[in-house]
Lab assay of single mutants.
Amino acid sequence: DHDVVPEDKFQETLHLKEKEGCPQAFHALLSWLLTQDSTAILDFWRVLFKDYNLERYGRLQPILDSFPKDVDLSQPRKGRKPPAVPKALVPPPRLPTKRKASEEARAAAPAALTPRGTASPGSQLKAKPPKKPESSAEQQRLPLGNGIQTMSASVQRAVAMSSGDVPGARGAVEGILIQQVFESGGSKKCIQVGGEFYTPSKFEDSGSGKNKARSSSGPKPLVRAKGAQGAAPGGGEARLGQQGSVPAPLALPSDPQLHQKNEDECAVCRDGGELICCDGCPRAFHLACLSPPLREIPSGTWRCSSCLQATVQEVQPRAEEPRPQEPPVETPLPPGLRSAGEEVRGPPGEPLAGMDTTLVYKHLPAPPSAAPLPGLDSSALHPLLCVGPEGQQNLAPGARCGVCGDGTDVLRCTHCAAAFHWRCHFPAGTSRPGTGLRCRSCSGDVTPAPVEGVLAPSPARLAPGPAKDDTASHEPALHRDDLESLLSEHTFDGILQWAIQSMARPAAPFPS
């Protein structure tokens, strides 16, 4: 592969990997390779389809078979030569091979799209000592099968071997295949498990690692696999990028399955594409389908809103127990993405979901129960707010008499603000006073009005108090039968009158 990737590009890729991570280095090298001529790309395919690569990765054979028959990708048995050289000459001794072996032994695996480039050397060096003999053996194999790289107009793939297949390693990572398949204008990513390549439709969760975000852009890794992070704060999961590491605690105790298979379609829109997988259930989501939507993949363990709600429900009964003089119970939860139609709101002032922060849900004790107040519409209280300059209440639009249902020339009671006709409430011909108009209920007259088809109010509507207090003497005590009587009149003013009279009014101040 030294004929494909020059030394300066190799060093530039290593520097970019240390600065921005393996995914960015892979993407940059792939983009550079696509700008080369067809001879360089053909050399790339020839390096990929060597015999030892085909033996190690069985899924490469179907890719090789898909090439046109007129494309010669065979390799000479006596060494490598550029395709432009007409004579089959043995190339001179390859010093770059020693360079590659020494550099890969030092860096474990470079971040390139060629056999030198995919593992994360920093994480491997940190986690190597417990498994040094086995990992050293794996390093000797890295130059042979560490990076199976493929690129063409139909298929483009980048393979990364790992030393996680050490025997006896619980939940060992089998390997990473960062794979971009450009077929019919689409893009897919796969993962390699035990020599087999699994596409998103049959993606397997190998051991402790999972394909957290099938994305090839942005600074985030394709698999949430930063070796420096180790395990999740809650004892979460091992990262795919942690090559040759000792077994780590796999999943939280509440995880239903340690080796679950995540779905390959969004649980909201039932469509495929780039998904984020939940650590607590097999569901996966688009970032845009979450509520609120996320802009980037959160670091650490992530769970959907259903799993978060289940966790909150487990903690909430203990938080609601009476604990005198104790601060509110704080339950730190990872930043969760909410699927459509589901929402768990945190306290005000918290950062938005999706940031690399930890939301704190506070379970406050329930407030003391209070008697429910009568629910009145805002339009129902409008007549009470229509007060004239002299303190006389004006008529609201649409006000109707509670007896006849007519809204023409209605009066407004100064005591309960109900609309009424003087002739309907006082049919006996009582003279109307000039000021202080009161309806039949507030004036103490319980004589029913002779209106055909309208039920008369119940005599129990009024329960006047002592006459010594004029204001308190007109406080009506309405009961269920009074409400039914008012409802039978089918008037809004009657219902409003009952609601206003049912509310307690402050006692009249004593004259000074």
Score class of each variant (00 low, 15 high):
P372R: 10
L373P: 09
P372E: 06
V446W: 11
L250P: 09
L455V: 11
Q309V: 07
A248M: 04
N394K: 08
A371F: 13
A396D: 11
P374N: 14
A267N: 08
P332T: 08
P322L: 11
S473L: 08
D445A: 07
S291R: 05
F420D: 03
S299A: 07
C386K: 12
D469C: 08
G398T: 13
E265C: 01
L287H: 08
G494K: 02
L337R: 05
A499S: 02
D482Q: 06
S441G: 07
N394P: 12
P389H: 10
Q313P: 12
V344S: 09
T301A: 07
D255A: 13
T414C: 03
S502T: 07
L455M: 09
V446L: 07
P459N: 12
S339L: 09
D271N: 04
R318S: 10
R295E: 11
T430H: 07
C439Q: 00
L496Q: 00
D409Y: 03
Q243I: 15
P509T: 09
P464D: 03
P292D: 03
C289A: 12
C401Q: 03
C404K: 03
T301K: 07
I297P: 14
A340R: 06
P328R: 10
D469I: 10
A370G: 13
L437V: 08
C307Y: 10
P334N: 09
R438G: 06
R423V: 00
Q316E: 10
L381S: 05
P334Y: 14
F492L: 04
L462F: 12
E265K: 11
G465Q: 09
P476I: 13
R440K: 06
K362E: 06
A288Q: 11
A370N: 11
E489D: 09
P511V: 08
A371C: 04
D406Y: 14
R318Q: 14
R423F: 01
L252I: 10
H363Q: 12
A310F: 14
M503H: 10
L384V: 06
P457R: 11
P427I: 10
G280L: 13
R400K: 10
A288D: 07
E343T: 10
S431P: 13
E314H: 14
L352Y: 14
V454R: 07
G375H: 14
L381T: 12
A366S: 07
V387E: 06
D409V: 01
C439W: 01
C401E: 03
L455W: 14
Q313N: 06
P328A: 10
P372S: 11
P459S: 10
W302C: 13
P292I: 11
S488C: 03
A417Q: 12
H474D: 05
P397C: 09
H259S: 05
Q501H: 07
P367C: 09
P506S: 08
V446Q: 13
S441I: 02
V446T: 09
L308T: 10
L376A: 04
D469K: 07
H382S: 07
C424D: 02
Q243H: 13
S458W: 10
P457G: 15
A310C: 09
D469V: 09
S485W: 08
D482F: 02
V360S: 07
L364M: 02
C266N: 03
V410N: 08
R480V: 08
P448L: 07
G336D: 00
R412A: 05
T414D: 09
G341L: 14
D356M: 01
A353V: 09
T311Y: 09
D406R: 05
S306K: 07
